[in-house]
Simulated scan of single mutants.
Amino acid sequence: MLGCTTADAPVKQQESSQPEAEAYFTNPIADGADPWVYKKDGVYYFCSSGNGGIQVSKSEKLTELGEKVLVWETPDTGWNKSNVWAPELHHFNGKWYIYYAAAKKPGGPFLHQRSGVLESVADDPFGPYVDKGMLYTGDSIQYAASAPKWAIDLTPLPLNGQLYAIWSGWKSDADTDKTKQHLYMATMSNPWTISSNRVLISSPEEPWETGGPLDLNEGPQVLKHQGKVFIIYSTRESWLKEYRLGQLTLSDTLLNPMEAAHWVKSGPVFEGTDEVLGVGHCSFTTSPDNTEHWILYHSKKSEEPGWDRNIRAQEFTWTADGFPDFGTPVPAGVPLPVPSGQEE
């Protein structure tokens, strides 16, 4: 080759054989809480509340959330004009749906939270969206319009051709928000219609779910793996450092999920440390090349009671018998390899 000497060749060969440097990121990846991510066609869509409504962003990188776009503004009047919490973005049958909680009155006490859903006009996660109204979350389906119950954190579960809704609610409406929260499930006839009375599937009863000022089960999220269905949920108090994750397991997808006895509880499956406080309200996805499983969750910024939190990402694995192993939350600032297949 012109201009190449024998002395040059070994050097060039050595350089070309060197592996590429591995890319890293550190937590937290963003400010905020209740992280929700939905992966479609190799793109990550993140959904959050803020700026007077609900925002969506997109990114090809799991560890970078992208620019937030306001896709729905709260109305001036109605049941959902205030207190928009924990929206989730889902895709069914060529449409996008956003499930969220909201209230007719701003601020606390938080007595009026209900769950609703938005539907995209076209197959576009950035909308526009049509408000499909409040979802029925009560005990008397024949009187659904007049008997909604307090409900937040609703998430859908498609299973064996049937769509279900899972959410956190109160047994009865109360005059104080210092009320226990339980997990409920109901059938859905389509992504915007609940078609049955609710069934109680979990209450805060275990020692690791209780002991604080208020016992909570909330933030249910679905995982499926090797013929099992998992509901990973948050428990203890969201404003305290003891916030953590519990797990319900449906050991066989052929079992009826509407029967509480079919769900086996275990936990805590992910909890804070002295350096990472109050871990909870998660969502799940895979790496860009689909070889890794990842959890997004929020944690508290200090030990002081409150909701000042940030968002973190971490890979998790599976045990030999098919259960998720979330490990231990990695402290802020510790370098972690970026998700497999993510380009820098």
Score class of each variant (00 low, 15 high):
Val11Gly: 05
Ser202His: 01
Thr253Arg: 11
Asp153Ser: 00
Ile141Val: 12
Phe25Thr: 06
Glu237Ile: 09
Thr77Gly: 00
Asp41Gln: 15
Ala103Asp: 06
Val43Trp: 08
Gly322Met: 09
Phe126Tyr: 13
Thr317Tyr: 09
Val222Trp: 08
Gln162Ala: 01
Ile54Glu: 09
Gly3Gln: 10
Trp96Ile: 02
Leu135Asp: 07
Trp307Gly: 01
Asp34His: 13
Ser266Leu: 08
Pro329Met: 04
Ser168Leu: 03
Gly32Cys: 13
Asn190Met: 03
Trp307Val: 04
Pro329Trp: 00
Trp85Cys: 03
Gly267Asn: 07
Leu245Val: 00
Glu205Pro: 07
Arg312Val: 02
Val338Gly: 01
Trp318Asn: 11
Val69Ser: 07
Glu119Lys: 05
Asp173Trp: 06
Gly327Tyr: 05
Thr26Pro: 00
His225Val: 07
Ser251Gly: 08
Asp31Val: 07
Ala122Phe: 01
Lys300Asn: 06
Ala33Asp: 12
Asp31Pro: 01
Lys265Glu: 13
Thr179Trp: 01
Lys300Ala: 09
Glu343Pro: 00
Glu343His: 06
Leu255Phe: 11
Pro329His: 09
Lys300Gln: 12
Val279Pro: 04
Val56Arg: 08
Ser172Gly: 02
Leu223Gly: 05
Trp263Glu: 04
Ala261Trp: 08
Lys12Pro: 03
His112Ser: 04
Leu254Asn: 15
Gln13Thr: 07
Ser57Trp: 03
Gln221Ala: 03
Pro106Asn: 05
Gln314Ile: 12
Glu242Phe: 07
Asp8Ile: 02
Lys68Trp: 14
Glu15Tyr: 12
His281Glu: 13
Val269Ile: 15
Phe326Glu: 04
Leu200Thr: 13
Leu240Glu: 10
Val338His: 05
His293Lys: 10
Ala30Val: 01
Phe230Cys: 02
Val264Leu: 14
Lys241Thr: 14
Ala144Lys: 14
Pro125Glu: 00
Thr74Gln: 09
Phe284His: 09
Leu336Asn: 09
Trp318Tyr: 11
Thr137Ile: 05
Arg312Ser: 12
Ser115His: 03
Gln142Trp: 08
Leu254Glu: 12
Thr74Trp: 01
Leu255Ser: 12
Lys40His: 14
Asp76Asn: 12
Gln113Gly: 01
Val334Lys: 13
Asp175His: 09
